[in-house]
Computed example of a mutant assay.
Amino acid sequence: MPINFFKHLAVHNDDHILRIAPLEHLKEIVEGFYVFKAGYRVERELFFNDGYPVIALMQNRNENVSVSIDGHMKSVGNAWVCGGVLRNTYCESGLDFQDCFVIRFYAVTFFKLFGINEDYFHQKQVFDFSEIAGYGFEQFEEAYYHGSSLEERMKITVRFLSEKVNTYSYPKVLLDIQKYIDRRGNLTVRDVMDGYAVRLNYKWLERNFKKHLGISPQNYLLIRRFLNAYIDLDSLTSKELLEIAIDNGYYDDNHFIKDFRRFSGVPPKTYFSRSKGAKTDKENYAK
């Protein structure tokens, strides 16, 4: 997803995002349905994922998204999936994401729902939804884009997902651990093991994160740390870069800059100076 989606998601009651709660029978599968109402065009938008796989559908059928992954261009169509750890990935389409419809899934159930392996996102992180949607996708897409209202499109989406729900087992405590990490923010694996209400075994945590979420606990904590620091930096507070880094669990500002390069391909100063409407205050944060 465009990283600004998560910036608005982090602010409760943000006017740029409308959240629709899932129906009871989908609550263990879908974290929420969202309409991204940011409505501003960015020529080159950084893509990111916060550990919750998403399926995004553009407002109009003819809005096809192209992404650059480490400099290699790829078209992912008007309905696409985003998950795993994204590095140096940008939307190059120059599209307005006004009213983009986003389905945010729990990873522990996402893989089972679409019948894919838990390491699927190791191979590709952004791709056309048709690659995994399975039976009924063409009818779903046709009906969705003929829907004339959000309510109608919601019903079509819920019906499509409901037809895929099967009975399967997974350690339900993983959902609670994931929510615990999201609430607490700056944590290490040791903090999770020591602070969570139930005693955890490291090998169990490592094995089940990889098996059911498709990502190691270390990588999950890493992407959450970067996202929190990015939002902090983007908020144009009076904090210095070093203070932002320390507040979000980095050793120092160089540690944060190194991570910023890992995810965006460039240091913060270059990234924000390229962003449309970037403020000069942000440039002073970076080296």
Rank of each mutant, 00 (worst) to 15 (best):
D182Y: 14
V165S: 10
D194Y: 09
R225T: 06
R225P: 14
L221S: 03
K164E: 02
L175M: 15
W204N: 06
T188C: 02
Q218N: 14
V173Y: 09
R207M: 05
L222Y: 15
D194K: 12
R190I: 08
S162R: 08
K172Q: 10
L213S: 06
N228A: 15
Q218V: 11
V198W: 12
V165N: 04
V192C: 01
N201A: 12
L205M: 00
I223W: 11
N228K: 15
K203N: 12
S216H: 05
V198I: 13
V189L: 09
R190D: 14
D176C: 05
A197C: 11
K172V: 04
K164L: 03
L227E: 13
R184F: 09
S169V: 02
L213D: 10
P217Y: 01
I223F: 08
S169L: 10
G214D: 10
Y170C: 09
L187D: 02
L221W: 06
D176N: 12
G185H: 04
N228T: 11
R207G: 10
Y202S: 11
L222K: 15
P217E: 04
L213A: 09
F209H: 03
R199A: 11
V173S: 10
L200D: 03
D191I: 11
F226S: 10
N186G: 11
L187T: 01
Y168V: 03
V189P: 01
A197K: 15
D191Y: 06
D194F: 04
N219I: 09
Y202I: 04
I177A: 00
G214S: 01
T188V: 05
V189T: 06
D194P: 08
R190C: 07
R183D: 14
K164Q: 05
L161N: 00
R183T: 14
L221Q: 02
T188F: 08
D176V: 07
L161P: 08
L175D: 11
M193V: 05
L187A: 02
I215Q: 10
V192T: 05
K172L: 06
P217W: 00
K164Y: 09
M193W: 02
Y202R: 14
S169H: 11
K203V: 02
S169D: 14
K164W: 04
L161M: 06
V198M: 15
R190N: 08
K210E: 12
T188S: 09
R225L: 07
K203R: 11
T167P: 10
D182P: 09
V192Y: 04
V192A: 00
P217N: 08
V198T: 13
V173W: 10
K203P: 02
D191C: 00
R190H: 08
L213H: 02
Y168K: 12
D182N: 14
N201F: 01
R183H: 13
K179Y: 12
S162K: 06
Y180H: 11
V192K: 00
N186Q: 12
V189R: 05
G214V: 02
E163L: 03
W204V: 01
K211V: 00
R224Y: 13
R183C: 08
V165R: 12
V198L: 14
L227I: 10
R184D: 07
N228V: 13
D191L: 01
I215K: 02
Q218H: 13
V192N: 01
N228C: 13
L221K: 05
R207T: 07
Y168T: 04
N219K: 13
F209W: 01
N208M: 09
P217G: 04
G214M: 03
V198N: 13
Q178W: 08
